[in-house]
Design a protein around this nucleic acid. Structure first.
Lengths: 116, 116
DNA sequence: TGAGATACCTTGACAGGTGAGGTAAATTGA
DNA sequence: TCAATTTACCTCACCTGTCAAGGTATCTCA
């Protein structure tokens, strides 16, 4: 079972920032790591990934630099900025709140709540 | 604190279906109920709500009928179809899975996972 | 030699959310 | 009594994130 893209919309950037909090990384690696960590159910599409990188960089959340690979394909590494780190904290808090609210709205019984 | 729209994208229909699982209802009421249940942090915008109703009805998830109010503004009631009920079950399962995966990707430590 | 993996990138189309606009009736309070 | 607010519905054009499809280049291994 694969997770629908629509259910993830809005979390792509947070997922990327979280990965970069563990250390500098590059597109291809982040993509693979996310796939592994998710148990294979989530695949960040390349187009999605790279457009997210553009957004994050132009808004100052991440910085990029070319790696000095002497072998293999060139890699563009990304690193979290201070702003990005703060954004990650906010996003993480937002996720926790969203999770609570969605749980209440989708999975919990609400029949005995007051009507007004 | 209000929950960002983007984080909810894709859950609007599920939220509506879930409300209708508790009994027939109409737009305005669903909107208010969602707001109350969410503790005031989530507000389904009218445009969002009504376009979602259109989608759900044309895909056979819900049915609508005009109420016979003798007082107050007219109301268009919606009721869940059998298909809609099944969809709600699938969506609920999808939410649980998404929640687990996002938790792992956003809030958990993954530093000790194998690299490949 | 050539298939597959690594690694990057862009473009155009699509879909869901929403601000801003609209209608109409009932209620409320000054 | 009458203006403001609430109830209740609706649509359109725009914005934004996703992604299929296309591209480039290098390395590895059979």
């Amino acid at each position: 079972m694969t997770i629908s893209a629509d259910l993830l919309r809005g979390y792509t950037e947070t997922i990327i920032l979280r990965r970069l909090a563990e250390g500098d990384s590059y597109g291809y690696q982040i993509s693979k790591r996310v796939n592994i960590i998710s148990g294979g159910v989530l695949e960040l599409k390349e187009a999605t990934l790279y457009t997210a990188f553009r957004r994050l960089e132009s808004s100052g959340m991440i910085r990029s630099y070319w790696g000095d690979e002497t072998t293999g394909a060139r890699r563009r590494y990304y690193s979290l900025t201070e702003t990005g780190r703060e954004k990650l904290n906010e996003d993480t808090a937002a996720w926790c709140e969203t999770r609570t609210v969605l749980n209440r709205l989708i999975t919990e019984e609400n029949e005995h709540e007051p009507d007004n």
